[in-house]
């Protein structure tokens, strides 16, 4: 049985955990293009080497991060998510862009 160390609950059987995907820093929500958002939400790098991943301890619903070597499947360390997410992010709307002049319809006189 593989073991994983949960930062809150300690060492547990791997069957108590659920994989939650790769961790990527979130793009600036006011500046990011749709393409960048799609990359962030839907696409994974699938790198060979050391990556940071989300894991959840199912029994306590506790989400945390783990550094794992995807080649050797070795867990290097696990740590609470608040090591990275230590500031509240308010998703305030981006300022309205300046209104553009409407293009004139074809045939409209100058």
């Amino acid at each position: 049985m593989k073991l994983l160390t949960c930062p809150l609950n300690g060492q547990r059987n791997i069957t108590e955990f659920t994989y939650g995907g790769e961790y990527h820093p979130m793009p600036d929500h006011q500046q990011a293009t749709s393409r960048e958002w799609a990359e962030h939400v839907f696409f994974h790098d699938n790198s060979a080497g050391v990556v940071i991943e989300w894991w959840c301890h199912s029994a306590s619903s506790y989400w945390f991060l783990a550094e794992r070597n995807t080649i050797s499947d070795q867990i290097l360390r696990t740590f609470p998510a608040d090591e990275i997410f230590n500031q509240r992010i308010d998703f305030a709307a981006a300022p309205e862009p300046e209104p553009e002049l409407k293009p004139k319809a074809n045939g409209e006189s100058q």
Binding site: R12, E16, S58, A59, S60
Partner: peptide, 12 residues
């Protein structure tokens, strides 16, 4: 306290 699996059921 142990938050863990008991007979495959999650529990506290």
């Amino acid at each position: 306290i142990a938050q863990t699996s008991i007979a495959k059921i999650n529990g506290v």
